[in-house]
Write a protein that binds this DNA or RNA. Structure first.
Ligand SMILES: Nc1ccn([C@H]2C[C@H](O)[C@@H](COP(=O)(O)OP(=O)(O)OP(=O)(O)O)O2)c(=O)n1
Ligand SMILES: [Mg+2]
Length: 1175
DNA sequence: ATCCTCCCCTAC
DNA sequence: TAAGGTAGGGGAGGAT
């Protein structure tokens, strides 16, 4: 079994010279390490596995488990307090202790204490009730001596010992099988300087039976076989166990709820409850902000893609002008403002550093809410402060108010985010509180993000106070020996800048991938940065716990402890991959396996489309009758509707989530007005709008939700939480008619309203000046689109066999491939913002226009002295791709633009029509999920007509003006085209949208079957569910000033693309950005589908092709490793640097290849357990 | 095998 | 008195 997952030694992950550590040495060490470990541990692990495998039986209904760590019976049933913890634990701990001594305190920033010994290493205590010494004192002792302190007895804790001086009978029962000791145990141990046997300090009230420890897993009797339950950690130990909690209501709450007036005014029964609640829910804000920030980043990226060379446009984000932060950027390190800095390379880069490992920074405010609050509460600085709703003396010693953020001073007392105020008061009676200031948080966050964007190549919005940035390009050319210093300095300058902008401290963790950068940021905190380099990997990871890895929480930790006998990374790294996978699941196991080795292949996710919209309220839900429930549900549905509307989304699937008080739970939860221990129930149903499609109709939503809710037949009084979630989202505007057949998508609306700014106006940077260069763009059955305003140096692809310089290739290719469209460009065409250059006009479309319209256009072009395209006279039967020019303003399509069928005469507007024919902007064509869905549907289902139509019904392929408009298609122009052209445009556009490209398809059957079936490739930008489509690579062309966008849908096209790329760069090293894109695309191919599938094949095929091409061009350089040969080796420095230059170029290509191959291998090992063979 | 559905889990 | 929301990754197991 271990063998099945047992892996070949990792090699490439660290093979590159990241931060100048010696890769070879490292890799080898790692290999040996792994191999020895794998062997040594195998049998042992298998045995353990068998011992432990005891499946918990699932309760009939699922029981809600609180995010904040309530215990479930399930967990208690399995070994939480059983053998794994009490028996095996000691032994494991001994080993661990020996090994990991040094580091633990380093990663115990919360403690603030010096670790003076490690006698409590592996001990995790929970203090119950009043003790002498006090809780604080005990905590300090334990932490100082290497142990853990837990405020709750929940499953997050994995508490090993309970410390108490007195117990109620109920708890006595609960703790029957636990290790319960007196405080003296700790005190004496500290005195003795060693861990004394706890058995000598067993807590024994009068007649408590001596617990039979460490034999069988403990099982609180209450949970024997019954359904699981959740526990509230809110009130300290008080109701830490169900048997106890079951009969104790929160008295304050019970009293309050008894008062009808109060209930009517302050619970879910109150009319304004939802709004009022959301207005005060920090978690709600957190979620909304995250959504907002993601969007913001996405938009910034689009701007960056569209206009990477424009000077920073002032962009107002949410009413806040953000240029301030960036315009006077004194750091000189970025400064593009809300346009995501794009790593523009000036000059051709020489041979690139090999192994372009990423440099990822995790940036996070320190104690964000507190820091923000302290800006205006300077008097509280340096004190233990927390942010929570309860202020001053409110609630006294028993406030269940949750702490959103605790200052670092407060953390020294063991206070943590999420803890209840009463808990905190226990740990630190003098704790100070500050109120929430939600607006302030948001504004600070915007400044923070704005600043980061000016430093980053890419950015992933993690939360309001936290972001991941990719700054790889910044250090690409930094000498290896200086990298670390350079990176640190960069991080510090970011910190300084954020400090300047916000007045708050952030910390930055830096490493070569995401998961490690997060580890690093924890080491950095507070108010610092930390660079985690490969050399330090083991010494940093080994002492950590699995929970310290982002994405691995309490449940996973529990699983690890149960099934693997340890949750320590130092131990887990010895386990073979198979064992980890068996214990944690395939994906999680592999993720862990890799993380343990410093590997994390994920890229920053900055542009994923949203997949669901939901509203949940699980607080203050206290109904008396169905009327209240109905009313509440309607309002909640209204809220859902509002959110859908805001994003212009509709959904086809609705899920209702209901939380109902667990029968064993008290009527009033420990947490005031909380949901307490609950059972949860989900019900899902398709959501059908009035037109049969997706909907956002609040009526329908509420009617459906109510129907589902009623079907449960729950007593309204028992409800504790309600949630409505909408999935299978579509863009509302693309949905106005039956999504069936002809509904098509021709082309795309430029996202940008302004006309493309042209650099050639002369005021722009000289070297960025655009020149339209001749670029014959032949097509094959896929498509080609040229973008009129792509970034100057970017070129977007082209099909195979086409030489940049060879215009004649067009005809040939077209012939051969029965192609469809050609877009021909002429050199140096003058730019007219209102008209696409003639060269960009799709001739086939052009020719298909009615005679008079065409003449009008021709006249216009001729007036501008642009010769009509040569092919205009003899273009073959057209198939087509149409794109739009970015010029389209809001006014371009007056809202009620009229559908016009072929033959109708419309007021002509040559400008507009031409625009319609012109390519869209680079980043403007972004596939959308809804469009994808429409396409999928269309492709899968036989077409049939249905639904109301705005236009004449005799038109076979049509789409409503709305649909067209939403896609950036001018309905008028569309109407001018003959049906077959429309059909083709629709087809092409459908694919195009989903591929992120604008493919051109002559053959409809091919359209339907091929691209979808054969490609199965994910476009990382907007991956629709199950989507099979291609990204739109962008390759930079040296020497070329003009950008093109070419798209493809067929494998051959990709090959052609690659060929084009290689050929086009024969004399230039590949651009890093292109390599990255290419690599990203390949990886996304491999990622598509669930198992090694077509996407994988595709990726391999393309790689092979690339390899072939490189061999053809620079075969003589293959395998050459050293890149620092002296120049004098080649006397022939002249001749255009011929040999030397060519050699350098070739090597650059090979390196790029190697880099990509490495990444693929690495990914492939993770996914499939082996490298990729290109033979 | 692969997809789909119904969850759990995680993070802030 | 308090405001325990929400989106996405992923696993288990049934449907196809
Ligand atoms: N259970 C939690 C956790 C966090 N937050 C809010 C308040 C925090 O200030 C903010 C950011 O969370 P972090 O996890 O980044 O914690 P802090 O920024 O407070 O502290 P630090 O990042 O220094 O650990 O999110 C919250 O409301 N409830
Ligand atoms: Mg923070």
């Amino acid at each position: 079994m271990p063998g099945s997952y047992a892996d070949k030694p990792q090699s490439q992950e660290h093979s590159s010279d990241w931060f100048s550590s010696d890769p070879a040495v490292y890799v080898q060490a790692l290999d040996e390490f792994e191999q020895s470990l794998a062997q040594q541990d195998c049998q042992q692990q298998v045995l353990k596995e068998q011992e432990i495998t005891v499946q918990e039986s699932q309760p009939p209904s699922t029981v809600h488990k609180r995010p904040h760590g309530e215990v479930t019976g399930e967990y208690l049933d399995s070994n939480t307090y059983g053998a794994a913890t009490f028996g095996g634990f000691g032994e494991y701990m001994t080993r661990k202790r020996a090994k990991l001594q040094v580091q633990n305190q380093a990663f115990n920033p919360e403690s603030g204490f010096e670790t003076s010994s490690n006698i409590f290493q592996g001990i995790a205590i929970y203090v119950d009730g009043f003790t002498i010494p006090s809780v604080q004192e005990l905590r300090r002792m334990v932490v100082e001596h290497g142990g853990d302190f837990h405020a709750y007895l929940d499953r997050k804790s994995l508490v090993t010992h309970i410390i108490t001086s007195s117990l109620t009978p109920a708890k006595l029962l609960d703790y029957q099988r636990m290790k319960v000791a007196k405080p003296d145990w700790l005190v004496e141990s500290v005195k003795a300087g060693k861990l004394l046997p706890w058995q000598n300090y067993i807590f024994r009230p009068e007649n408590r039976a001596l617990p039979s420890m460490n034999k069988t897993p403990a099982q609180p009797s209450l949970f024997s076989t019954k359904k699981t339950a959740t526990i509230d950690p809110v009130t300290e130990g008080k109701d830490a166990f169900p048997s106890y909690a079951a009969h104790k209501s929160n008295l304050n709450a019970a009293r309050a709820i008894e008062n009808p007036g109060w209930r009517a005014a302050h619970t879910s029964a109150a009319p304004g409850f939802i709004d009022e609640y959301y207005k005060n829910s920090r978690l709600h804000y957190l979620s909304m902000w995250k959504t907002e920030l993601r969007k913001l980043v996405q938009e910034a990226q689009e701007r960056a893609e569209n206009a990477p060379f424009e000077s920073s446009p002032k962009v107002s984000v949410q009413g806040l002008t953000l240029t301030a932060a960036s315009s006077r950027n004194d750091t000189n390190l970025g400064g593009l403002g809300p346009v995501l800095r794009s790593p523009s390379k000036k000059g051709k880069e020489k041979v690139r550093d090999r192994g372009c490992e990423q440099v990822i920074m995790h940036c996070d405010f320190d104690a964000f809410f507190v820091s923000a609050g302290l800006l205006d509460h300077k008097n509280l600085r340096g004190k233990p402060v927390v942010v929570c709703h309860s202020q001053g003396d409110q609630g006294g010693a028993s406030s269940t108010s949750e702490i959103a953020s605790a200052s670092y001073e407060a953390r020294k007392f063991g206070i943590k985010n999420g803890m209840s105020l009463q808990q905190a008061r226990k740990l630190c009676p003098t704790i100070q509180t500050m109120p929430y200031e939600f607006d302030k948080y948001r504004n600070l966050s915007l400044k923070f993000y704005t600043t980061l964007m000016s430093y980053a190549d890419d950015l992933e919005a993690v939360s309001v106070d936290e972001a991941l940035i990719d700054v790889t390009s910044t250090f690409e050319h930094v000498e290896a020996s200086q990298r670390c210093e350079s990176i640190k300095a960069y991080a510090e300058s970011i910190r300084a800048k954020v400090r300047e902008e916000t007045g708050c401290e952030i910390s930055i963790g830096i490493s070569w991938n995401i998961i490690l950068s997060r580890i690093a940021s924890r080491k950095a905190k507070p108010a610092n940065s930390f660079l985690l380099v490969p050399d330090d990997l083991r010494s940093i990871l080994d002492p950590l716990d699995i929970k310290d890895l982002h994405g691995f929480g309490s449940s996973t930790k529990q699983k690890a402890v149960d099934k693997l006998g340890t949750s320590s990374l130092g131990e887990l790294v010895k386990k073979p991959k198979g064992i980890l996978c068996d214990a944690l699941g395939k994906g999680t196991g592999e993720m862990l396996y890799n993380a343990l080795r410093g590997v994390d292949e994920r890229r920053l996710a900055s542009d994923k489309p949203r997949k669901s919209v939901s509203c949940d309220i699980n607080y203050g839900i206290r109904f008396q009758n169905d009327t209240e429930v109905d009313s509440f549900m309607r309002k909640l549905s209204e809220e859902v509707h509002k959110r859908l509307k805001k994003e212009d989304l509709r959904g086809k699937l609705i899920t209702l989530k209901v939380m109902k008080r667990d029968p064993s739970a008290p009527l009033e939860a420990a947490k005031f007005m909380g949901h307490g221990m609950c059972e949860t129930f989900n019900k899902q149903s398709t959501l059908i709008g009035r037109d049969g499609g997706a909907t956002d109709d609040p009526q329908i939503i509420s009617q459906q939700s109510l129907r589902m809710l009623r079907s449960f037949n729950f007593d309204p009084k028992e409800l504790r939480g309600i949630g409505i979630q909408i999935q299978k989202l579509e863009k509302a505007t693309a949905n106005s008619a039956a999504p069936e057949v002809g509904q098509g998508l021709i082309s795309f609306k430029p996202r940008d309203k302004e006309p493309p700014k042209n650099v050639s106006s002369g005021k722009g940077n000289e070297k960025e000046k655009r020149t339209i260069t001749s670029w014959p763009v032949p097509t094959n059955p896929s498509a080609i689109v040229i973008s009129s305003d792509d970034p100057p140096t970017e070129i977007r692809l082209s099909p195979p066999q086409i030489e940049v310089e060879v215009a004649t290739a067009v005809a040939k290719t077209r012939e051969e491939q029965d192609a469809t469209t050609a877009l021909v460009e002429r050199a140096a065409e003058p730019y007219h913002p209102d008209l696409p250059s003639f060269s960009q006009v799709d001739m086939s479309v052009f020719k298909a226009l009615p005679e008079d319209v065409r003449r009008e256009l021709e006249a216009e072009y001729s007036r501008r002295s642009v010769p009509p395209p040569a092919e205009a006279q003899e273009a073959p039967a057209p198939t087509t791709v149409v794109t739009t020019n970015a010029t389209a303003g809001p006014s371009r399509l007056p809202a009620p633009a009229k559908w016009v069928a072929w033959g109708d005469r419309v007021p002509k507007n040559s400008k507009r029509i031409a625009q319609q024919l012109a390519p869209k902007r680079g980043g403007a064509v972004v596939p959308r999920t809804d469009q994808w869905d429409a396409l999928t549907k269309w492709l899968e289902k036989p077409k049939k007509f249905k639904g109301k139509r705005a236009g004449p019904s005799h038109v076979v392929y049509d789409a409503s003006p709305n649909e067209l408009r939403s896609l950036g298609i001018d309905p008028e122009v569309f109407g001018l085209l003959p049906p077959e052209i429309r059909r083709e445009q629709l087809s092409g556009a459908k694919i195009a949208i989903d591929t992120g490209a604008l493919p051109l398809l002559t053959d409809e059957s091919k359209l339907i079957i091929k691209p979808v079936k054969t490609m199965v490739i994910r476009y990382p930008r907007l991956p629709p569910p199950k989507a099979s489509y291609l990204p739109q690579p962008v390759l930079k062309m040296p020497g070329e000033k003009r950008g093109y966008r070419v798209s493809y849908t067929e494998p051959d096209d990709i090959q052609g693309l690659v060929e084009k790329w290689v050929t086009g760069f024969r004399r230039h090293p590949p651009n890093q950005k292109d390599v990255d894109r290419f690599s990203k695309w390949l990886l996304s191919c491999m990622d598509s589908g669930k198992a090694g599938d077509v996407g994988m094949e595709k990726a391999v095929k393309v790689m092979k092709w690339w390899l072939f091409l490189l061999r053809r061009n620079w075969g003589w350089l293959e395998g050459i490793e050293s890149f620092d040969l002296d120049e004098d080796e080649f006397e022939d420095g002249e001749k255009g640097g011929s040999y030397y230059e060519r050699r350098e170029v070739g090597k650059a290509w090979w390196m790029a290849f190697q880099t990509v191959k490495n990444q693929m291998d690495s990914y492939s090992r993770k996914r499939f357990g082996g490298c990729i063979s290109l033979r």
